[in-house]
Deep mutational scan, measured.
Amino acid sequence: MTVLPKDIPGDSLKVTVGTANGKPGDTVTVPVTFADVAKMKNVGTCNFYLGYDASLLEVVSVDAGPIVKNAAVNFSSSASNGTISFLFLDNTITDELITADGVFANIKFKLKSVTAKTTTPVTFKDGGAFGDGTMSKIASVTKTNGSVTIDP
């Protein structure tokens, strides 16, 4: 049996954390987006972790974005102690894959008090994996961190 590389060099799934701005007490939304989904033969499963400074940001909610089908079954998240974990699994293993680019999740943060303008990162942590529509590992994932700026 011969195994051929399935990824064209330079191609990767792009996962990007967005940015937001606000004043202390505001609730802002930071999107997590996927790009080049079709090039990577869709997404059938993924789990990953984001870190944030809990002294500056309070997670209000984490909701599935419009590219997630049947989110009540296929999407899960949790947030505590400065870490947000995400889990997606197409429970049907074929019919509810992520097949389009767009917003995977929206994180709502309540901004805490600061004395001066502060930009705090929302960054990928170690761990996690992504699988394509056949549940094979997506070897190349380009992750881009985001941030939230609090301006009193």
Rank of each mutant, 00 (worst) to 15 (best):
L4N: 14
L4V: 13
L4H: 09
K6V: 12
D7L: 12
P9Y: 08
G10C: 12
D11G: 13
L13A: 11
L13K: 10
K14N: 09
V15R: 06
V15Q: 05
T16M: 12
T16F: 13
T16Y: 07
V17S: 09
V17M: 06
T19N: 13
T19M: 09
A20C: 13
A20S: 11
G22L: 07
K23Q: 13
P24E: 13
G25M: 14
D26R: 12
V28W: 07
V30E: 11
V30I: 13
V32D: 02
V32Y: 06
T33C: 09
T33R: 11
F34Y: 09
F34R: 00
A35Q: 14
A35G: 14
M40K: 07
M40I: 11
M40F: 05
K41N: 10
N42H: 11
N42I: 10
V43W: 02
V43K: 02
G44N: 00
T45V: 13
C46S: 03
C46E: 01
C46R: 03
N47Y: 01
F48C: 08
Y49T: 01
L50E: 08
G51L: 07
G51Q: 11
D53K: 10
D53N: 09
L56R: 10
L56G: 12
L56T: 08
L56I: 09
L57R: 05
E58N: 08
E58R: 11
V59Q: 11
V59G: 06
V59E: 14
V60P: 06
V60T: 11
S61F: 11
V62Y: 08
D63M: 13
D63E: 09
A64C: 14
A64D: 14
A64T: 08
P66E: 12
I67F: 10
N70Y: 07
A71H: 11
V73Q: 05
V73H: 03
V73E: 14
N74R: 00
N74E: 00
S76L: 08
S77T: 12
S80D: 05
N81P: 15
G82W: 15
T83E: 05
T83S: 14
I84P: 00
I84W: 05
I84V: 07
S85D: 01
F88A: 01
L89Q: 00
L89T: 00
D90C: 00
N91R: 02
N91G: 01
T92H: 02
D95V: 03
D95N: 05
D95S: 05
D95K: 02
E96Y: 02
E96P: 01
E96F: 02
L97Y: 00
L97C: 03
T99A: 05
T99Q: 07
A100L: 05
A100E: 06
A100G: 09
D101L: 03
D101G: 07
D101Q: 03
G102V: 12
G102N: 01
G102C: 06
F104P: 00
F104T: 03
A105T: 13
A105G: 07
N106G: 03
N106M: 04
I107V: 07
K108R: 06
K108D: 00
K110D: 00
L111Y: 03
K112H: 04
K112I: 04
S113E: 03
V114A: 07
V114E: 05
V114N: 10
V114D: 07
T115W: 05
T115C: 03
T115M: 05
T115Q: 09
A116Q: 05
K117F: 03
K117C: 05
T119P: 08
T119G: 05
T120S: 07
P121T: 06
V122G: 05
D126K: 15
G127E: 02
G127M: 01
G128A: 02
F130M: 04
G131Q: 00
D132M: 00
G133K: 07
G133L: 03
T134W: 06
S136G: 06
K137L: 00
K137N: 02
I138E: 01
A139P: 15
A139K: 14
V141C: 00
V141R: 03
K143G: 01
K143Y: 01
T144M: 04
N145V: 05
G146F: 06
G146W: 01
S147M: 06
S147H: 04
V148I: 05
I150Y: 14
D151N: 15
P152N: 07
